[in-house]
Design a protein around this nucleic acid. Sequence first.
DNA 1: ATTTATGCAAAACTTTTGCATGGGA
DNA 2: TCCCATGCAAAAGTTTTGCATAAAT
Lengths: 141, 141
Amino acid sequence: MTTDSPHIQRLKQAGCRLTQARLTVLAVLEAEHGHITSADVLDGVERVNPAIGRASVFRTLDLFTQLGIIRPTYIDTSLTPTYVMMRDGHHHHVICTECKRFFEFDDCGMEALTRNLEETLDIRISGHLLEFYGLCAACQT
Amino acid sequence: MTTDSPHIQRLKQAGCRLTQARLTVLAVLEAEHGHITSADVLDGVERVNPAIGRASVFRTLDLFTQLGIIRPTYIDTSLTPTYVMMRDGHHHHVICTECKRFFEFDDCGMEALTRNLEETLDIRISGHLLEFYGLCAACQT
DNA sequence: ATTTATGCAAAACTTTTGCATGGGA
DNA sequence: TCCCATGCAAAAGTTTTGCATAAAT
């Protein structure tokens, strides 16, 4: 008996069916380590299973976003979102504004601020995205 | 003699001309306190000065993004970005995942982490966006 | 006087919709 | 068996381009 991934558990918990489209999109996202444009998700799914329609891919990306599994952000072009995986509800990276390369990091020390905001604003916080912008070593002329 | 806003100074410093299109877009952004969709920027500019073309608005939004004056993020729908103002290079808010209402806050205590990342990754950091997701008081059933 | 930026309108893309059908639970 | 989710293809929108012209410095 295998243990389901946290994301699959999230789907079940939300009462969603584990369909081919959803499982395939999830596999594609994880194969790219969770930094991938919608266009590349479309291509990836097409390659793995051409029977899956574009509409289902978009519907799945919307669903995953709603469930907090992924989060769209503007990185490459403004025409296609880049989705990042939200492991345990959060994600942190530095993006080079020149070459668009990104660098993920884990520790963000956001626990205290999170609790502080929950009390101050009376909000139940489920996750966060922290994005730094700058010039990477190679792009600093 | 009046002092230019920091954003106008940024434009000058980058060698950009202070055109009607750019000044108008900037005015519209500031009138909305810097949380505004591209569609609303389009409408706002149209209302203020109908002679300004859509293309210029998009070109200006791209320019401002490149200069770090604003930053696009996905909030309402996936079809139109919501632009937030980057005051002093950074911006922080909490978004209710249910009603999409947002709550800005100033203090993020990110100075130590910024310095740490600059050293560790050898990157020159110019700004950041910190987004929390959760349920606001009204949306917690 | 130069050269950057604009406006216009069409073109290019991505994403969404409606509806009959298939596949999970 | 029941109903959610899918696939298809067309429709809806937003954003981008190319080029002659205007306007900022």
